[in-house]
Structures are given as structure tokens and as C-alpha cells.
Design a protein around this nucleic acid. Structure first.
Lengths: 197, 197
DNA sequence: ACTGTGCATTGATGTATGATAAGAAACCGA
DNA sequence: TCGGTTTCTTATCATACATCAATGCACAGT
């Protein structure tokens, strides 16, 4: 068994015994992915939810003009997946790619089924995860509707200071819905303001 | 009991007996709201999920500059709520307001608890609802990241042709993240294109 | 029928951000 | 250490959309 972070994540959130979790986790494959390798490509059916043990993963889409739009970043201890593709068994619209050499636990639907059957508290926990996810998406929509480039960047910095330093600005720009050039301008402007004070 | 749509909605999605649903629904209050009345205001704690029996409800936020941003429209047979406020017991960032005289069923957390205890299939159903919600939000984010004003409007028309005719353009504009003036111009341009063909 | 209020349209103008291109800097991998 | 990518910055120009302001409608209340 080689997924200490996921084990810790589950034991600290679920009412579950050490050996119980071990026997369930045994069924999960751990995968090492090199930087730039793909866990999912557009039009594939996503079969897994990935738990990031180490490294950094990005989920993004490509529009008709060929531009990338970052959906999410997933560092250690985060999940990443096209849950809709998994759940509704649809072709995915997204790419999931490693930004660093990473280790991910591949979790399939059976895993969730087993958990919800064997661990009563799992249902609630899963519910909470889903609600958290929704809250997060809600907030982002609100931001995209109302905030200008500078505000978006500031919110990102406040929310993900760690990620900021690990990914190229191009990708942060594509997360914020602006061009890399605009982001560069925003940063310059912010630096100027801070200097003045 | 005065919530025929909700009853139908539940019985057609859950493995449940007629009288069982009736006894559970009995605990829910049905509320009539006049056009423009509020079901929730910013900074209040949202205590209910509202199921719209009839009418039309809007959820929106107001930013620092006083501009409204429509989060969602909820016509008949839809749910509307600040689920995050309910679930995490936080102050809400949103307003929920009737756009037409409406009837809503006020569903509290106990209702969900009762359902999940008494109806085994409810857990799965609830899960499905949450996943659907997430899919929906995901799609909107993708749209906001990648589509121009015209595309956004076209997507809206395709997705909610019914709502289109029932709400002022100002609000549709605020849903799409553009100004009413821009929306007016987009529509004019589209009309011109269609005429030419 | 009159009048007020809100909404949609239109035009003139402004501005933030996009597009393009080119140079500078940082980051590999050999 | 070098040479080559990739990323970041900077500059110019272009444009979609916002802002501001005026007008026209339509509907509701008196």
C-alpha cells in the first residue's frame, strides 16, 4: 500500500478502523505520472477520480479556437476528476494533465460503492465533499461575473498562494479567464502600486 | 397538502409509496410569494431549500459597485437555495426573489434527513441531483471562460427558451455577465444576420 | 385618456483587455 | 557550459464591451 496521504485523509474524516481502510485501499491502484503526461484526454470516458498523493495536476478544456481554459489545479491531497463523465458515463470535454511528476491514487466507482456500503459515515462525508465542490464553483462563477482582471488575480493569490509559485503564469491567466499578457500587466501595475505606498 | 408538483417529482424519482410521501410532505410548509418578494436576503442564514411549485424565482448577488449578478433562474419544478448557507450554516451572499407570483415548498434539513433515513433510494437520488448541479456549474464556468457575448446569449436561448420570454433582458444580461445595452446590440445583430439569410 | 415608471433601444465615446510581435529572462537537457 | 525552449515582459495596435446619455415604448395606476 502506497497512498499514505489518502489513508490519512480518509481516517481523519471517516469513522473507520485502520485495517478496514487498508483492505479497501488495497483495491486502488497507485499511478506515477511524469510531468506533462495525461490522465485523461478530451472525448475519452473518465473512469476514475484521482487523489493526488504528491505533485500537481491540472484540468483544462480547449475551445474551438484552440485556446486552453484551466478548470482546476489539484495539488497534494486534492481530488481531480471529470466526475460528470464518470457519473453519467459521458465522453469528457476535458484534459487532465500532470504539471509536475506526480503520484495519484486511481479511485473507481466500486471504491465509492464499497465505502458507502461498509462505512455508514461515508455518505455524509461524500455529501460534504460535493457541497464543498459546489460552493467552490459558485464562488468562481460569481467572480467571473463580477470581478475585473486585477481582482481576479488578487483573489487567486489569496486563495492559492502555494499554487501560484508552482505553475506558469500562462496557466494562471487561463484559470482567471484573461490572457497571459494581461496578467503580466496586472502584476506590473500591482507592483507599481505597492512600491508607491 | 398542496404541493402536487413536488409530490410528482419525488414519486417519479424515488422508490416510494404514495402515502409515505404524503406523510413526509405534510411537514413541509407551502408559501405563496408575491412578485418581487424576497425568500432570502444577503447576510441572512438560509434555512430552506425551495421547490418551485409555480411561478419563477431568481437568485442573485450584488457586488461592491451595486451591480446585480444573476446566479440562477428557477421556474416550476426547480429547486433554488443557497445550499452552502444551509449546509455550512453561513451568512448568505445572495438574494432570492420572486419574479412572478409564485408558490414554493419550503424544505428544511430535517426533510432531507427523514428522506434519507426512510427511503433507501434517496441517497442515490440526492447524489444524482448534486452531480447534476455540479455539471451545470462546470458548464457555466467553461462558458464564462471561453465564450463571447453572442455565444453566451445563443447558449442561453438554446438551454432556457422558456425562461427567455418570462424575464426582463436586464436580468438575462446579468446572468450572461454583460450589460443590458450589449445584450440589446447582440440581439439586433443576430436579427440582422437572420434576415440576410 | 393621461401620466409616470421601468425597460429596451440607439448613438457617441471611453477603456480594459485581446491580438500580434519581438526582445529579455529563466529554465532545462545534453 | 552551452544552445535551445519555454516563459515572461513590453510595446503597439485593434476591438469587444462598458459607460453615459437621450429617446421611444409599453404598461399600470389614477
Amino acid at each position: 500500500m502506497n497512498s499514505p496521504s489518502l489513508k490519512l485523509f480518509l481516517t481523519s474524516n471517516l469513522d473507520i478502523e485502520e485495517d478496514e481502510i487498508l483492505s479497501i485501499l488495497k483495491s486502488c491502484q497507485v499511478k506515477s505520472v511524469k510531468k506533462d503526461a495525461f490522465l485523461l484526454r478530451e472525448n475519452e470516458h473518465c473512469k476514475h477520480t484521482f487523489f493526488v498523493e504528491s505533485g500537481l495536476i491540472r484540468q483544462y478544456s480547449i475551445d474551438d479556437k484552440g485556446k486552453e481554459h484551466t478548470i482546476s489545479f489539484a495539488p497534494e491531497n486534492w481530488f481531480v476528476s471529470d466526475r460528470e463523465s464518470v457519473y453519467f458515463d459521458e465522453a469528457s470535454a476535458y484534459y487532465i494533465q500532470a504539471l509536475e511528476d506526480s503520484e495519484v491514487v486511481m479511485i473507481d466507482e466500486d471504491f465509492f460503492l464499497t465505502l458507502s456500503e461498509e462505512i455508514p459515515s461515508f455518505t455524509d462525508f461524500n455529501n460534504k465533499l460535493l457541497h464543498n465542490h459546489i460552493r467552490h464553483l459558485q464562488k468562481r462563477i460569481n467572480m467571473l461575473l463580477s470581478a475585473c482582471a486585477e481582482q481576479r488575480y488578487l483573489e487567486f493569490v489569496a486563495m492559492y498562494p502555494d499554487i501560484l509559485l508552482r505553475v506558469p503564469q500562462t496557466m494562471i491567466a487561463s484559470y482567471l479567464g484573461i490572457t497571459p499578457e494581461s496578467l503580466s500587466r496586472v502584476r506590473k501595475e500591482l507592483a507599481r502600486k505597492n512600491f508607491k505606498k
